[in-house]
Each structure stands twice: as structure tokens, then as C-alpha cells.
Nucleic acid binder design. Structure first.
Lengths: 121, 121
DNA sequence: TATGGTACAAACAAATTTGTAAGTAATGAC
DNA sequence: GTCATTACTTACAAATTTGTTTGTACCATA
């Protein structure tokens, strides 16, 4: 959300990349956290504090940032319950659900190729 | 490849994330360039200069770095022909080929959801 | 002897991402 | 009136990623 030079190569490259369907999708789930968060939410709704427990070392800041970004991209729906102490639940939207089979395949690739790598070292 | 603090939260988080099959795989193709490069190489072998033409604003340095990383991860095979002027060809390895169907699905997701977004704005 | 094309490498700089530490608001229990 | 709880926010700092610029090795050809 910081200001950015309009015509830096950085920005031109970014545009080029998000024009492509493939990398448009990839960017939605890029970075260190988004995929795991979506994956966790794939099994069930979770509150902020429950999510935090899933990732032992994530900072609250990071978790909030990622959730906000996912919300912005309409991959996650946020529901606030006006209680004290507050309760907030996060769940996947329909378009995020479509990612789940892809995650499965990625996961299968990972499982397989981690094994191959281990058997050689 | 730079030195890093061994037990920073950053590193702990990274370990946590690459332990997971899903994010292990995601990390192999993460960042701005790897997916597009693999995708281009999915159609045919390409030389360095041909790849560069595919991405109008990429710097040679970036392209080299990404190709090196992909080679390191055994997703890309590099062949040098001892000619003058030099010729180097890049092609996918068998394990990289397995990513292609996943890219297709990601691409389909992108196409669909970019359209949805455009129709609303 | 000078020039040109290919595929880089090195030094540096900018931009973005991720992490740290501290603080806030609301409210009901003690 | 103090404290604990939850889900954050803010200001700051560290780490990583990406980009810019300049330079190099190779030898064929002019």
C-alpha cells in the first residue's frame, strides 16, 4: 500500500505478469502465508486465535495483513460477532474453494518430490 | 544464499512452511518469475536470449538468477553448446513437467476470476 | 587490429515483504 | 478500580527480492 513509481521496470513487470491468467492466479496466493492459510480454512471456519495457533511463529501483524489481503481479493469472508471478548471468524469464499483441488495436486507433487530428494541425500 | 540468523522467527517460519508438502511445492515456483519461465519452457526448449524476449522488461540478472535457482531445484536442465557465439538451451526436467497440468488449472482459475472481477467494475 | 554477438557476473541500489514490540478498545469478573 | 481476554493497530526495523549499471570471455569476421 505504499506509493510506487508508476513506470519503474518493477511496475511494468508486475503489470505484464498480472495480465497473464496464470500469474494473475499465482499472485493471489503468493507469498509466504496465503496458501497455508487458505488450506487450513479449507477444512473449516476458524477464528483469528485458532489460525494463529496453527502457525506457531507467525506474528499477529502478519496474520492480520494476510487475512486482509485475502479478504480484499474475496478469497476469505470475515464475520465479526459483536461480543466481549470479540469473536471473528474467517471462512473461504466460493472462488477460494476452487483452489482446493489445485492445492491437493501441489501437495502431492511436494510429497513425491521431497521423498525423491531425501532418497538421494 | 546470504548468511542468515539461524533461529530468527523468519527462519523458523520458513522451516515450518517448507515442512509442509503443499508449501514445499509452492516455494519451488514462488516469486515473480519462476512460474512464467516454467510455463514458457513447457511449450519448448528456449535459449537465454529467447526467454529474455518473452519478458520485455526482465533484467538479465533476474533471468539468470531464476534460471540458476530452477536448475538447482532440478526443474530446469541447462545445456551449453561450445560454439561461437555461445549457445545455451534451457528445458524442463521430468519433475517440472508434472507442474504443467497444475499451471493449466491455475490459469483457468485466473481466466475465470479475472472476468468476474471485470464484469463488476 | 577492431568489432560484434551471446550469456552471463559483480557491485550497488531500490522496493517489497516479513518480523518485533508495544499499545488499544470493550466489557464483565474479581 | 484493576485485570484479563480477543482481535486487532501502529511505529519501527530487519531480511529478502528485484532492478540498474557496468563489465567480461569467447573467437569469427571485416
Amino acid at each position: 500500500m505504499t506509493a510506487r513509481k508508476e513506470n519503474s521496470t518493477y511496475t511494468l513487470n508486475e503489470k505484464f505478469i498480472t495480465d497473464c491468467d496464470l500469474t494473475y492466479a499465482a499472485n493471489k496466493i503468493g507469498g509466504r502465508w496465503k496458501i497455508v492459510i487458505l488450506d487450513k480454512l479449507g477444512t473449516r471456519k476458524l477464528r483469528f486465535s485458532e489460525l494463529k495457533k496453527e502457525f506457531p511463529y507467525i506474528s499477529e501483524r502478519m496474520l492480520t495483513l494476510q487475512l486482509r489481503a485475502l479478504e480484499q481479493d474475496e478469497l476469505v469472508k470475515r464475520t465479526v460477532y459483536a461480543e466481549v471478548p470479540p469473536r471473528v471468524e474467517y471462512e473461504l469464499t466460493p472462488i477460494a474453494l476452487e483452489f482446493l483441488p489445485i492445492f491437493c495436486q501441489l501437495s502431492a507433487w511436494g510429497r513425491k518430490n521431497k521423498m525423491l530428494k531425501n532418497n538421494r541425500s
